[in-house]
Design a binder for these strands. Sequence first.
DNA 1: CGCGTTCTTGACTGCTTTCAAAGATGGTGG
DNA 2: CCACCATCTTTGAAAGCAGTCAAGAACGCG
Lengths: 250, 250
Amino acid sequence: VRDARCAIMNTKLAPIDTSPALMRIAALAPLSSEELRALDGAAATARTVPSHREITQEGAPNVRPTILLAGWVYRVRFFSDGRRQILGFALPGDVIGVAHQQRALANNTIVTLTPSSLCQAPDPGIDPDRSGLREAYAVNAAVEQLLSYRHIARLGRFGAYERIVDWLLEIHERLAAAGLAHNGTFAFPATQEVVGDALGLTSVHVNRTLQLMRREGLLNISGGVARLLDLPRMASVVRYSPLQVTADPE
Amino acid sequence: VRDARCAIMNTKLAPIDTSPALMRIAALAPLSSEELRALDGAAATARTVPSHREITQEGAPNVRPTILLAGWVYRVRFFSDGRRQILGFALPGDVIGVAHQQRALANNTIVTLTPSSLCQAPDPGIDPDRSGLREAYAVNAAVEQLLSYRHIARLGRFGAYERIVDWLLEIHERLAAAGLAHNGTFAFPATQEVVGDALGLTSVHVNRTLQLMRREGLLNISGGVARLLDLPRMASVVRYSPLQVTADPE
DNA sequence: CGCGTTCTTGACTGCTTTCAAAGATGGTGG
DNA sequence: CCACCATCTTTGAAAGCAGTCAAGAACGCG
Protein backbone atom coordinates (compact mmCIF):
# COMPACT_ATOMS: atom_id res chain seq x y z
CA VAL A 1 0.00 0.00 0.00
CA ARG A 2 2.65 2.45 1.01
CA ASP A 3 4.67 1.67 -2.07
CA ALA A 4 1.62 2.13 -4.24
CA ARG A 5 0.88 5.47 -2.69
CA CYS A 6 4.40 6.66 -3.14
CA ALA A 7 4.51 5.67 -6.76
CA ILE A 8 1.09 7.10 -7.46
CA MET A 9 0.96 10.30 -5.52
CA ASN A 10 4.65 11.13 -5.69
CA THR A 11 4.81 11.71 -1.98
CA LYS A 12 7.71 10.97 0.27
CA LEU A 13 7.80 7.61 1.98
CA ALA A 14 6.09 7.91 5.35
CA PRO A 15 5.93 5.70 8.43
CA ILE A 16 3.24 3.05 8.32
CA ASP A 17 0.97 4.68 10.89
CA THR A 18 0.49 7.72 8.71
CA SER A 19 -0.98 5.87 5.77
CA PRO A 20 -3.44 8.52 4.60
CA ALA A 21 -6.46 6.29 4.05
CA LEU A 22 -6.20 4.59 7.42
CA MET A 23 -5.55 7.88 9.14
CA ARG A 24 -8.72 9.31 7.71
CA ILE A 25 -10.84 6.28 8.60
CA ALA A 26 -9.44 6.19 12.10
CA ALA A 27 -10.45 9.82 12.47
CA LEU A 28 -14.09 8.92 11.81
CA ALA A 29 -14.49 6.75 14.90
CA PRO A 30 -12.32 5.16 17.60
CA LEU A 31 -11.12 1.80 16.32
CA SER A 32 -9.85 -1.17 18.28
CA SER A 33 -6.50 -2.66 17.42
CA GLU A 34 -8.39 -5.68 16.05
CA GLU A 35 -10.24 -3.37 13.69
CA LEU A 36 -7.07 -1.60 12.66
CA ARG A 37 -5.54 -5.00 11.93
CA ALA A 38 -8.57 -5.89 9.80
CA LEU A 39 -8.09 -2.68 7.83
CA ASP A 40 -4.40 -3.36 7.41
CA GLY A 41 -5.16 -6.86 6.22
CA ALA A 42 -7.66 -5.57 3.69
CA ALA A 43 -5.19 -2.97 2.48
CA ALA A 44 -2.65 -5.73 1.89
CA THR A 45 -4.94 -7.12 -0.81
CA ALA A 46 -5.22 -3.78 -2.61
CA ARG A 47 -5.59 -3.67 -6.36
CA THR A 48 -4.32 -0.85 -8.51
CA VAL A 49 -6.52 0.75 -11.15
CA PRO A 50 -5.16 3.03 -13.89
CA SER A 51 -6.59 6.50 -14.34
CA HIS A 52 -9.78 7.13 -16.32
CA ARG A 53 -11.22 3.67 -15.62
CA GLU A 54 -14.82 3.12 -14.57
CA ILE A 55 -15.13 1.41 -11.19
CA THR A 56 -18.93 1.32 -11.17
CA GLN A 57 -21.50 2.13 -13.79
CA GLU A 58 -24.79 3.84 -13.05
CA GLY A 59 -27.64 1.36 -13.26
CA ALA A 60 -25.41 -1.70 -13.04
CA PRO A 61 -25.44 -3.90 -9.92
CA ASN A 62 -23.63 -2.23 -7.07
CA VAL A 63 -20.10 -3.29 -6.21
CA ARG A 64 -19.24 -4.40 -2.70
CA PRO A 65 -18.07 -1.80 -0.18
CA THR A 66 -14.62 -0.59 -1.15
CA ILE A 67 -12.02 1.62 0.48
CA LEU A 68 -10.08 4.05 -1.64
CA LEU A 69 -6.52 3.76 -0.34
CA ALA A 70 -4.79 6.14 -2.70
CA GLY A 71 -5.69 8.36 -5.63
CA TRP A 72 -8.68 10.47 -6.57
CA VAL A 73 -11.89 9.09 -8.08
CA TYR A 74 -15.04 10.95 -9.07
CA ARG A 75 -18.75 10.19 -9.33
CA VAL A 76 -20.24 11.39 -12.58
CA ARG A 77 -23.48 11.56 -14.50
CA PHE A 78 -23.48 11.72 -18.29
CA PHE A 79 -25.96 13.50 -20.52
CA SER A 80 -27.17 12.40 -23.90
CA ASP A 81 -25.51 15.33 -25.68
CA GLY A 82 -22.04 14.60 -24.33
CA ARG A 83 -22.18 16.97 -21.39
CA ARG A 84 -21.28 15.51 -18.05
CA GLN A 85 -21.58 16.60 -14.45
CA ILE A 86 -19.18 15.44 -11.79
CA LEU A 87 -21.21 14.77 -8.64
CA GLY A 88 -18.34 14.58 -6.22
CA PHE A 89 -14.94 13.15 -5.49
CA ALA A 90 -13.77 10.30 -3.31
CA LEU A 91 -10.38 10.84 -1.70
CA PRO A 92 -8.06 8.45 0.16
CA GLY A 93 -9.88 6.91 3.11
CA ASP A 94 -13.33 7.28 1.59
CA VAL A 95 -15.58 4.24 1.45
CA ILE A 96 -17.55 3.76 -1.75
CA GLY A 97 -20.16 1.31 -2.95
CA VAL A 98 -21.99 0.90 0.35
CA ALA A 99 -25.62 -0.15 0.01
CA HIS A 100 -27.94 -1.66 2.59
CA GLN A 101 -30.71 -2.89 0.35
CA GLN A 102 -31.18 -6.09 -1.67
CA ARG A 103 -30.22 -6.08 -5.35
CA ALA A 104 -28.88 -2.55 -5.10
CA LEU A 105 -27.97 -0.71 -8.28
CA ALA A 106 -25.11 1.76 -8.41
CA ASN A 107 -26.68 5.19 -8.39
CA ASN A 108 -23.75 6.79 -10.14
CA THR A 109 -20.79 6.03 -12.32
CA ILE A 110 -17.44 6.18 -10.53
CA VAL A 111 -14.27 6.84 -12.50
CA THR A 112 -10.63 7.03 -11.45
CA LEU A 113 -9.14 10.48 -12.00
CA THR A 114 -5.66 9.26 -11.11
CA PRO A 115 -4.19 5.79 -10.85
CA SER A 116 -5.80 4.51 -7.67
CA SER A 117 -5.41 1.83 -5.09
CA LEU A 118 -8.57 0.09 -3.84
CA CYS A 119 -9.36 -2.68 -1.42
CA GLN A 120 -12.46 -4.37 -0.13
CA ALA A 121 -13.83 -2.77 3.03
CA PRO A 122 -13.71 -5.15 6.02
CA ASP A 123 -17.24 -6.28 6.89
CA PRO A 124 -18.13 -5.48 10.50
CA GLY A 125 -21.06 -7.88 10.23
CA ILE A 126 -22.83 -8.15 13.56
CA ASP A 127 -19.60 -8.71 15.43
CA PRO A 128 -19.77 -6.62 18.62
CA ASP A 129 -15.98 -6.29 18.48
CA ARG A 130 -16.29 -4.31 15.31
CA SER A 131 -18.73 -1.63 16.39
CA GLY A 132 -16.05 0.95 15.73
CA LEU A 133 -15.89 -0.03 12.10
CA ARG A 134 -19.65 0.10 11.79
CA GLU A 135 -19.59 3.54 13.34
CA ALA A 136 -16.82 4.67 10.99
CA TYR A 137 -18.81 3.54 7.96
CA ALA A 138 -21.91 5.28 9.28
CA VAL A 139 -20.01 8.52 9.79
CA ASN A 140 -18.48 8.14 6.33
CA ALA A 141 -21.98 7.86 4.87
CA ALA A 142 -23.14 10.92 6.78
CA VAL A 143 -20.20 12.93 5.49
CA GLU A 144 -20.94 11.78 1.97
CA GLN A 145 -24.50 13.00 2.29
CA LEU A 146 -23.40 16.29 3.77
CA LEU A 147 -20.99 16.77 0.88
CA SER A 148 -23.82 16.21 -1.57
CA TYR A 149 -25.97 18.82 0.13
CA ARG A 150 -23.14 21.31 0.18
CA HIS A 151 -22.48 20.71 -3.47
CA ILE A 152 -26.14 21.40 -4.28
CA ALA A 153 -26.00 24.67 -2.38
CA ARG A 154 -22.73 25.57 -4.08
CA LEU A 155 -24.10 25.01 -7.57
CA GLY A 156 -27.45 26.60 -6.87
CA ARG A 157 -26.47 29.84 -5.21
CA PHE A 158 -22.75 30.52 -5.61
CA GLY A 159 -21.12 32.31 -8.54
CA ALA A 160 -18.01 30.94 -10.20
CA TYR A 161 -15.59 32.65 -7.83
CA GLU A 162 -17.34 31.47 -4.70
CA ARG A 163 -17.84 27.97 -6.07
CA ILE A 164 -14.14 27.48 -6.67
CA VAL A 165 -13.10 28.91 -3.30
CA ASP A 166 -15.65 26.87 -1.39
CA TRP A 167 -14.84 23.68 -3.21
CA LEU A 168 -11.08 24.04 -2.79
CA LEU A 169 -11.52 24.64 0.92
CA GLU A 170 -13.59 21.48 1.17
CA ILE A 171 -11.05 19.40 -0.74
CA HIS A 172 -8.33 20.84 1.44
CA GLU A 173 -10.17 19.97 4.63
CA ARG A 174 -10.80 16.41 3.47
CA LEU A 175 -7.21 15.85 2.36
CA ALA A 176 -5.95 17.33 5.60
CA ALA A 177 -7.96 14.70 7.50
CA ALA A 178 -5.85 12.09 5.70
CA GLY A 179 -2.65 13.98 6.32
CA LEU A 180 -2.37 14.80 2.62
CA ALA A 181 -2.40 18.58 2.96
CA HIS A 182 0.19 20.69 4.73
CA ASN A 183 -0.01 24.40 5.15
CA GLY A 184 -2.68 24.79 2.50
CA THR A 185 -0.62 22.84 -0.02
CA PHE A 186 -1.65 19.53 -1.55
CA ALA A 187 -1.30 17.41 -4.68
CA PHE A 188 -4.03 18.44 -7.09
CA PRO A 189 -4.51 16.13 -10.07
CA ALA A 190 -7.66 17.71 -11.55
CA THR A 191 -7.45 19.61 -14.82
CA GLN A 192 -9.37 22.84 -15.24
CA GLU A 193 -11.85 20.92 -17.37
CA VAL A 194 -12.47 18.48 -14.52
CA VAL A 195 -12.95 21.38 -12.11
CA GLY A 196 -15.43 22.88 -14.55
CA ASP A 197 -17.35 19.63 -14.86
CA ALA A 198 -17.54 19.41 -11.09
CA LEU A 199 -18.61 23.00 -10.53
CA GLY A 200 -20.97 23.45 -13.46
CA LEU A 201 -18.63 25.83 -15.29
CA THR A 202 -16.71 25.77 -18.53
CA SER A 203 -12.99 25.15 -18.39
CA VAL A 204 -12.46 28.56 -19.97
CA HIS A 205 -14.25 30.29 -17.17
CA VAL A 206 -12.46 28.21 -14.54
CA ASN A 207 -9.21 29.33 -16.12
CA ARG A 208 -10.08 33.02 -16.01
CA THR A 209 -11.33 32.80 -12.44
CA LEU A 210 -8.25 30.93 -11.24
CA GLN A 211 -6.06 33.56 -12.86
CA LEU A 212 -7.95 36.27 -11.02
CA MET A 213 -7.41 34.47 -7.73
CA ARG A 214 -3.76 34.04 -8.52
CA ARG A 215 -3.40 37.76 -9.23
CA GLU A 216 -5.12 38.46 -5.93
CA GLY A 217 -2.59 36.27 -4.14
CA LEU A 218 -5.38 34.02 -2.91
CA LEU A 219 -4.06 30.75 -4.27
CA ASN A 220 -1.90 29.15 -6.89
CA ILE A 221 -2.50 25.94 -8.80
CA SER A 222 0.26 24.72 -11.06
CA GLY A 223 2.31 21.68 -11.74
CA GLY A 224 -0.30 19.42 -10.16
CA VAL A 225 0.02 21.19 -6.83
CA ALA A 226 -2.50 23.52 -5.25
CA ARG A 227 -1.33 26.15 -2.79
CA LEU A 228 -4.03 27.91 -0.85
CA LEU A 229 -2.05 30.97 0.15
CA ASP A 230 -4.63 32.77 2.26
CA LEU A 231 -6.94 30.31 3.96
CA PRO A 232 -8.54 32.90 6.27
CA ARG A 233 -9.46 35.17 3.39
CA MET A 234 -10.77 32.26 1.35
CA ALA A 235 -12.88 31.09 4.28
CA SER A 236 -14.33 34.54 4.77
CA VAL A 237 -15.31 34.80 1.09
CA VAL A 238 -17.79 31.94 1.46
CA ARG A 239 -18.17 31.86 5.25
CA TYR A 240 -16.73 28.38 5.17
CA SER A 241 -17.54 26.13 8.10
CA PRO A 242 -15.80 22.80 8.63
CA LEU A 243 -17.58 19.55 7.85
CA GLN A 244 -19.20 18.14 10.95
CA VAL A 245 -21.70 15.33 11.24
CA THR A 246 -21.16 14.24 14.84
CA ALA A 247 -21.71 16.19 18.05
CA ASP A 248 -18.59 16.80 20.12
CA PRO A 249 -18.73 14.79 23.34
CA GLU A 250 -19.30 16.90 26.44
CA VAL B 1 -54.38 10.05 9.40
CA ARG B 2 -56.86 10.01 6.60
CA ASP B 3 -58.76 12.88 8.13
CA ALA B 4 -55.57 14.84 8.48
CA ARG B 5 -54.68 14.27 4.89
CA CYS B 6 -58.07 15.33 3.71
CA ALA B 7 -58.01 18.49 5.75
CA ILE B 8 -54.49 19.35 4.77
CA MET B 9 -54.26 18.47 1.15
CA ASN B 10 -57.87 19.17 0.25
CA THR B 11 -58.20 15.85 -1.47
CA LYS B 12 -61.24 13.69 -1.62
CA LEU B 13 -61.68 11.05 1.08
CA ALA B 14 -60.15 7.83 -0.15
CA PRO B 15 -60.35 4.21 1.04
CA ILE B 16 -57.90 3.33 3.79
CA ASP B 17 -55.66 1.19 1.62
CA THR B 18 -54.85 4.14 -0.59
CA SER B 19 -53.34 6.28 2.12
CA PRO B 20 -50.62 7.97 0.08
CA ALA B 21 -47.75 7.67 2.55
CA LEU B 22 -48.34 4.01 3.27
CA MET B 23 -48.84 3.27 -0.41
CA ARG B 24 -45.48 4.78 -1.19
CA ILE B 25 -43.65 2.96 1.60
CA ALA B 26 -45.27 -0.33 0.67
CA ALA B 27 -43.99 0.21 -2.87
CA LEU B 28 -40.41 0.34 -1.62
CA ALA B 29 -40.35 -3.25 -0.35
CA PRO B 30 -42.79 -6.09 0.31
CA LEU B 31 -44.17 -5.67 3.82
CA SER B 32 -45.77 -8.26 6.07
CA SER B 33 -49.18 -7.56 7.55
CA GLU B 34 -47.44 -7.18 10.92
CA GLU B 35 -45.28 -4.45 9.47
CA LEU B 36 -48.25 -2.76 7.86
CA ARG B 37 -49.99 -2.81 11.23
CA ALA B 38 -46.92 -1.24 12.83
CA LEU B 39 -47.02 1.53 10.25
CA ASP B 40 -50.73 2.03 10.81
CA GLY B 41 -50.17 2.20 14.54
CA ALA B 42 -47.44 4.78 14.14
CA ALA B 43 -49.62 6.80 11.81
CA ALA B 44 -52.32 6.84 14.47
CA THR B 45 -50.01 8.90 16.69
CA ALA B 46 -49.36 11.49 13.98
CA ARG B 47 -48.75 15.10 14.91
CA THR B 48 -49.69 18.00 12.71
CA VAL B 49 -47.23 20.81 12.01
CA PRO B 50 -48.26 24.15 10.47
CA SER B 51 -46.55 25.39 7.34
CA HIS B 52 -43.21 27.22 7.46
CA ARG B 53 -42.07 25.50 10.67
CA GLU B 54 -38.59 24.07 11.13
CA ILE B 55 -38.61 20.35 11.88
CA THR B 56 -34.85 20.02 12.17
CA GLN B 57 -32.06 22.54 12.24
CA GLU B 58 -28.70 22.04 10.60
CA GLY B 59 -26.05 21.36 13.20
CA ALA B 60 -28.52 20.49 15.96
CA PRO B 61 -28.83 16.92 17.23
CA ASN B 62 -30.64 14.77 14.74
CA VAL B 63 -34.31 13.93 15.32
CA ARG B 64 -35.44 10.35 15.40
CA PRO B 65 -36.56 8.70 12.17
CA THR B 66 -39.86 10.21 11.06
CA ILE B 67 -42.37 9.43 8.34
CA LEU B 68 -43.98 12.27 6.46
CA LEU B 69 -47.63 11.20 6.20
CA ALA B 70 -49.03 14.23 4.44
CA GLY B 71 -47.80 17.57 3.14
CA TRP B 72 -44.59 18.80 1.52
CA VAL B 73 -41.43 19.65 3.45
CA TYR B 74 -38.10 20.85 2.12
CA ARG B 75 -34.45 20.60 3.13
CA VAL B 76 -32.69 23.93 2.95
CA ARG B 77 -29.35 25.57 3.50
CA PHE B 78 -29.11 29.25 4.37
CA PHE B 79 -26.37 31.68 3.41
CA SER B 80 -25.07 34.54 5.44
CA ASP B 81 -26.39 37.15 3.01
CA GLY B 82 -29.97 35.93 3.13
CA ARG B 83 -29.82 33.72 0.09
CA ARG B 84 -31.01 30.18 0.53
CA GLN B 85 -30.84 27.00 -1.48
CA ILE B 86 -33.48 24.33 -1.22
CA LEU B 87 -31.68 20.99 -1.31
CA GLY B 88 -34.70 18.81 -1.95
CA PHE B 89 -38.23 18.00 -0.98
CA ALA B 90 -39.73 15.23 1.11
CA LEU B 91 -43.17 14.08 -0.05
CA PRO B 92 -45.77 11.84 1.63
CA GLY B 93 -44.25 8.46 2.42
CA ASP B 94 -40.71 9.76 2.66
CA VAL B 95 -38.68 8.92 5.76
CA ILE B 96 -36.57 11.72 7.19
CA GLY B 97 -34.08 12.02 10.02
CA VAL B 98 -32.48 8.59 9.64
CA ALA B 99 -28.92 8.35 10.95
CA HIS B 100 -26.89 5.30 11.85
CA GLN B 101 -24.09 6.92 13.80
CA GLN B 102 -23.75 7.98 17.43
CA ARG B 103 -24.50 11.59 18.37
CA ALA B 104 -25.59 12.39 14.84
CA LEU B 105 -26.17 15.99 13.87
CA ALA B 106 -28.82 16.99 11.37
CA ASN B 107 -26.99 17.75 8.15
CA ASN B 108 -29.69 20.07 6.91
CA THR B 109 -32.57 22.21 8.06
CA ILE B 110 -35.99 20.79 7.24
CA VAL B 111 -38.98 23.11 6.95
CA THR B 112 -42.65 22.44 6.27
CA LEU B 113 -43.82 23.98 3.03
CA THR B 114 -47.46 23.08 3.75
CA PRO B 115 -49.19 22.01 6.93
CA SER B 116 -47.87 18.51 7.41
CA SER B 117 -48.59 15.34 9.26
CA LEU B 118 -45.66 13.44 10.78
CA CYS B 119 -45.22 10.32 12.85
CA GLN B 120 -42.33 8.39 14.29
CA ALA B 121 -41.04 5.68 11.97
CA PRO B 122 -41.51 2.19 13.45
CA ASP B 123 -38.15 0.76 14.50
CA PRO B 124 -37.40 -2.53 12.79
CA GLY B 125 -34.63 -3.17 15.33
CA ILE B 126 -33.11 -6.57 14.78
CA ASP B 127 -36.49 -8.27 14.64
CA PRO B 128 -36.33 -10.78 11.76
CA ASP B 129 -40.07 -10.29 11.28
CA ARG B 130 -39.43 -6.73 10.27
CA SER B 131 -36.87 -7.24 7.53
CA GLY B 132 -39.32 -5.71 5.09
CA LEU B 133 -39.33 -2.47 7.02
CA ARG B 134 -35.55 -2.43 7.20
CA GLU B 135 -35.43 -3.00 3.46
CA ALA B 136 -37.97 -0.23 2.85
CA TYR B 137 -35.90 2.22 4.87
CA ALA B 138 -32.75 1.20 3.02
CA VAL B 139 -34.43 1.71 -0.34
CA ASN B 140 -35.77 5.04 0.87
CA ALA B 141 -32.23 6.10 1.74
CA ALA B 142 -30.94 4.99 -1.66
CA VAL B 143 -33.66 6.98 -3.41
CA GLU B 144 -32.80 10.01 -1.32
CA GLN B 145 -29.18 9.76 -2.37
CA LEU B 146 -30.12 9.28 -6.00
CA LEU B 147 -32.32 12.38 -5.82
CA SER B 148 -29.40 14.38 -4.45
CA TYR B 149 -27.16 13.27 -7.28
CA ARG B 150 -29.78 14.09 -9.87
CA HIS B 151 -30.25 17.50 -8.35
CA ILE B 152 -26.53 18.17 -8.57
CA ALA B 153 -26.53 17.22 -12.24
CA ARG B 154 -29.61 19.35 -12.83
CA LEU B 155 -28.09 22.44 -11.27
CA GLY B 156 -24.69 21.94 -12.79
CA ARG B 157 -25.50 21.30 -16.42
CA PHE B 158 -29.13 22.16 -17.18
CA GLY B 159 -30.45 25.55 -18.20
CA ALA B 160 -33.56 27.03 -16.62
CA TYR B 161 -35.98 25.39 -19.05
CA GLU B 162 -34.50 21.94 -18.65
CA ARG B 163 -34.20 22.28 -14.89
CA ILE B 164 -37.87 23.00 -14.48
CA VAL B 165 -38.99 20.24 -16.82
CA ASP B 166 -36.72 17.65 -15.23
CA TRP B 167 -37.68 18.64 -11.71
CA LEU B 168 -41.41 18.60 -12.39
CA LEU B 169 -41.14 15.15 -13.95
CA GLU B 170 -39.33 13.93 -10.86
CA ILE B 171 -41.91 15.39 -8.49
CA HIS B 172 -44.63 13.88 -10.62
CA GLU B 173 -43.06 10.45 -10.53
CA ARG B 174 -42.64 10.57 -6.78
CA LEU B 175 -46.18 11.77 -6.13
CA ALA B 176 -47.53 9.14 -8.50
CA ALA B 177 -45.83 6.47 -6.37
CA ALA B 178 -48.01 7.67 -3.50
CA GLY B 179 -51.11 7.84 -5.66
CA LEU B 180 -51.10 11.62 -5.46
CA ALA B 181 -50.81 12.29 -9.19
CA HIS B 182 -53.33 11.37 -11.84
CA ASN B 183 -52.88 11.91 -15.52
CA GLY B 184 -50.04 14.35 -15.03
CA THR B 185 -52.09 16.42 -12.59
CA PHE B 186 -51.22 16.95 -8.95
CA ALA B 187 -51.55 19.41 -6.07
CA PHE B 188 -48.61 21.78 -6.26
CA PRO B 189 -48.12 23.99 -3.20
CA ALA B 190 -44.78 25.58 -4.16
CA THR B 191 -44.67 29.24 -5.11
CA GLN B 192 -42.47 30.36 -7.97
CA GLU B 193 -40.03 31.70 -5.41
CA VAL B 194 -39.77 28.27 -3.80
CA VAL B 195 -39.22 26.70 -7.21
CA GLY B 196 -36.50 29.25 -7.85
CA ASP B 197 -34.81 28.54 -4.52
CA ALA B 198 -34.85 24.84 -5.32
CA LEU B 199 -33.55 25.17 -8.86
CA GLY B 200 -31.01 27.92 -8.36
CA LEU B 201 -33.03 30.50 -10.30
CA THR B 202 -34.75 33.77 -9.49
CA SER B 203 -38.51 33.73 -9.14
CA VAL B 204 -38.67 36.20 -12.03
CA HIS B 205 -36.94 33.82 -14.34
CA VAL B 206 -39.03 30.90 -13.14
CA ASN B 207 -42.08 32.96 -13.98
CA ARG B 208 -40.93 33.75 -17.50
CA THR B 209 -39.92 30.18 -18.19
CA LEU B 210 -43.20 28.75 -16.91
CA GLN B 211 -45.08 31.18 -19.12
CA LEU B 212 -43.11 30.00 -22.11
CA MET B 213 -43.97 26.40 -21.31
CA ARG B 214 -47.61 27.33 -20.91
CA ARG B 215 -47.64 29.01 -24.32
CA GLU B 216 -46.08 25.89 -25.76
CA GLY B 217 -48.86 23.78 -24.30
CA LEU B 218 -46.32 21.80 -22.30
CA LEU B 219 -47.82 22.33 -18.87
CA ASN B 220 -49.93 24.60 -16.73
CA ILE B 221 -49.46 25.52 -13.10
CA SER B 222 -52.17 27.60 -11.48
CA GLY B 223 -54.41 27.60 -8.47
CA GLY B 224 -52.08 25.29 -6.60
CA VAL B 225 -52.45 22.57 -9.22
CA ALA B 226 -49.86 21.47 -11.72
CA ARG B 227 -50.97 19.91 -14.99
CA LEU B 228 -48.25 18.29 -17.06
CA LEU B 229 -50.05 18.30 -20.38
CA ASP B 230 -47.47 16.55 -22.52
CA LEU B 231 -45.46 14.09 -20.48
CA PRO B 232 -43.80 12.44 -23.50
CA ARG B 233 -42.53 15.73 -24.85
CA MET B 234 -41.34 16.83 -21.43
CA ALA B 235 -39.49 13.54 -20.97
CA SER B 236 -37.81 13.89 -24.35
CA VAL B 237 -36.60 17.40 -23.55
CA VAL B 238 -34.37 16.10 -20.75
CA ARG B 239 -34.21 12.40 -21.67
CA TYR B 240 -35.91 11.67 -18.39
CA SER B 241 -35.45 8.20 -16.98
CA PRO B 242 -37.48 6.93 -14.02
CA LEU B 243 -35.89 6.68 -10.58
CA GLN B 244 -34.56 3.20 -9.96
CA VAL B 245 -32.31 1.98 -7.18
CA THR B 246 -33.14 -1.73 -7.15
CA ALA B 247 -32.63 -4.34 -9.85
CA ASP B 248 -35.81 -5.90 -11.19
CA PRO B 249 -36.01 -9.56 -10.11
CA GLU B 250 -35.48 -11.98 -12.98
C1' DC C 1 12.96 16.37 -29.29
C1' DG C 2 8.04 15.81 -30.86
C1' DC C 3 3.36 15.33 -30.11
C1' DG C 4 -0.87 15.41 -27.50
C1' DT C 5 -2.95 17.43 -23.70
C1' DT C 6 -3.72 21.37 -21.00
C1' DC C 7 -3.67 26.19 -20.32
C1' DT C 8 -4.39 30.86 -21.98
C1' DT C 9 -6.37 34.64 -24.60
C1' DG C 10 -9.81 37.51 -27.33
C1' DA C 11 -14.15 38.81 -29.22
C1' DC C 12 -18.83 38.08 -29.25
C1' DT C 13 -23.22 36.12 -27.83
C1' DG C 14 -26.87 35.21 -24.70
C1' DC C 15 -29.03 33.47 -20.68
C1' DT C 16 -30.14 34.99 -16.22
C1' DT C 17 -30.25 38.50 -12.78
C1' DT C 18 -31.49 42.88 -10.94
C1' DC C 19 -34.55 46.51 -9.81
C1' DA C 20 -38.91 48.37 -9.80
C1' DA C 21 -43.67 48.57 -10.15
C1' DA C 22 -48.06 47.14 -11.66
C1' DG C 23 -51.67 43.35 -11.69
C1' DA C 24 -53.90 39.17 -9.86
C1' DT C 25 -55.22 36.11 -6.28
C1' DG C 26 -56.97 34.33 -2.14
C1' DG C 27 -58.17 34.48 2.47
C1' DT C 28 -60.27 37.37 6.35
C1' DG C 29 -63.11 40.19 8.79
C1' DG C 30 -66.67 43.51 8.72
C1' DC D 1 -71.32 39.42 0.26
C1' DC D 2 -67.90 42.63 -0.38
C1' DA D 3 -63.85 45.44 0.91
C1' DC D 4 -59.22 44.92 2.18
C1' DC D 5 -54.64 43.24 2.82
C1' DA D 6 -50.83 40.26 2.21
C1' DT D 7 -48.92 37.29 -0.89
C1' DC D 8 -47.98 35.85 -5.28
C1' DT D 9 -47.59 36.57 -10.22
C1' DT D 10 -46.48 39.32 -14.18
C1' DT D 11 -44.02 42.81 -16.94
C1' DG D 12 -40.18 45.93 -18.72
C1' DA D 13 -35.60 47.69 -19.29
C1' DA D 14 -30.83 47.41 -18.41
C1' DA D 15 -26.65 45.23 -16.67
C1' DG D 16 -23.64 41.28 -15.85
C1' DC D 17 -21.90 36.84 -15.48
C1' DA D 18 -20.76 32.92 -17.91
C1' DG D 19 -20.76 30.41 -22.36
C1' DT D 20 -19.11 29.77 -27.13
C1' DC D 21 -15.84 29.54 -30.72
C1' DA D 22 -11.35 29.67 -32.25
C1' DA D 23 -6.52 29.85 -32.13
C1' DG D 24 -2.07 30.25 -30.10
C1' DA D 25 1.21 29.16 -26.09
C1' DA D 26 2.89 26.18 -22.63
C1' DC D 27 3.51 21.96 -20.53
C1' DG D 28 4.68 17.13 -19.86
C1' DC D 29 5.27 12.56 -21.29
C1' DG D 30 7.54 9.12 -24.11
